[in-house]
Design a protein around this nucleic acid. Structure first.
Length: 324
DNA sequence: GACTGCTATACGTGACCTGG
DNA sequence: CCAGGTCACGTATAGCAGTC
């Protein structure tokens, strides 16, 4: 579970932090030492747009789209079999608005599992919402890091990934396995299972629960992969939310610590789609009867939607400009 | 108004550093 | 050795001014 978090002080928003950090940059160049941070006056409204701290993310929708685009029908069917078919419909999002993601994450209350835009606009976030967005399996079994004796497929995947790269936690190894030409109707059951394992590792690492490292993840879901036929029985939606909650905690800590760079981990893309999908944006709003929701959100429409809700007052960027 | 070119900014990602 | 973090660079995009 995620430890309860203190709410950041009113001034300690990303925007405020960006302005403060910008001023620190002007004062001391790129060499931000502890002194700069200590000297910053948290109550002083400093506004120096244009040199904000960088926000980074390891989510790569492009990677997922590009890989899935190379799948033939056989491979796509394998993905459908494990209940991850929603990943096949994701549109190419060349870029994500990371400021928007950070803004949303700042407004997530982990304890109450809500997205709180303001006092009037509060959205409850549940496993079911993740399922709506990605059509992920939302089974009754929870995913925990406990591992039993690894299955033959798990052992084989570890062997293959160790040969291809540095280990099973390498996303490159998973990608390489997924692109193998010899995965077809003649493949053994173990190879098929390895493909499914690789796919889960790949999408979790690149999209559903990315870490700060771009090419590795911590595989804390081996237990859910041990019996491939049982993958659908696990609650992958809760897993995504749990990592997102941790990411929210990390973001708030980074903001409190006035880090120069804010690294977004977790599936902040879910927050973007979830929030935009709950807004009344008139003709820009998506039809309500289509699942998974992510497949409705292409780059252009996301960009337009964000444009519509964005406002800028005194250097503070807000994305709250629409009714829920 | 449409087009073009320049510049600034944002994002993606590889390399590297540091601490456990 | 590995995870987390930082830095740097390439590329895409946005914004703006100048020209037609």
């Amino acid at each position: 579970m995620v430890a309860p978090l203190e709410q950041p002080a009113p001034h300690a928003t990303l925007e405020q932090d960006q302005r403060d950090a910008a001023t620190a940059t002007e004062n001391s160049g790129r060499d931000h030492g502890a002194a700069d941070i200590a000297d910053a006056d948290p109550g002083e409204a400093i506004c120096a747009p244009g040199s904000a701290p960088s926000v980074t993310s390891r989510i790569s929708v492009q990677k997922v789209c590009s890989l899935v685009g190379k799948f033939n029908k056989f491979k796509r069917d394998l993905v459908e079999e494990i209940g991850f078919g929603g990943m096949l419909g994701i549109k190419m999002l060349a870029k994500l608005n990371l400021k928007f993601s950070a803004w949303l994450m700042e407004r997530v209350d982990v304890e109450s599992s809500t997205l709180k835009i303001d006092e009037q606009r509060v959205l409850q976030i549940q496993d079911h919402d993740v399922q709506k967005v990605f059509s992920l399996p939302c089974g009754t079994r929870s995913i925990c890091p406990d591992t039993t004796e690894p299955s033959e497929a798990c052992k084989e995947f570890m062997r293959a990934s160790a040969y291809l790269s540095k280990g099973a936690h390498s996303l490159k190894a998973a990608e390489a396995y997924l692109l193998r030409d010899d995965i077809n109707g003649d493949s053994s059951n173990v190879q098929i299972d390895c493909f499914k394992i690789a796919f889960v590792i790949f999408v979790v690492g690149h999209l559903l629960a990315p870490s700060t490292k771009h090419d590795y993840i911590t595989i804390d879901f081996w237990a859910a992969l041990n019996d491939i036929s049982q993958i659908k029985e696990f609650n992958w939606c809760a897993y995504v939310l749990e990592h997102l909650n941790r990411a929210v905690g990390k973001l708030k800590t980074d903001i409190r610590n006035r880090n120069i760079t804010v690294h977004l981990v977790g599936c902040h893309l879910f927050l973007q789609v979830f929030y935009l999908d709950n807004l009344d944006l008139g003709p820009l709003s998506k039809t309500k009867d289509h699942l998974p929701r992510i497949s409705l959100f292409d780059y252009e429409s996301v960009k337009k939607m964000i444009e519509v809700i964005t406002s800028n007052v005194d250097g503070d960027t807000s994305f709250a400009g629409a009714s829920v």
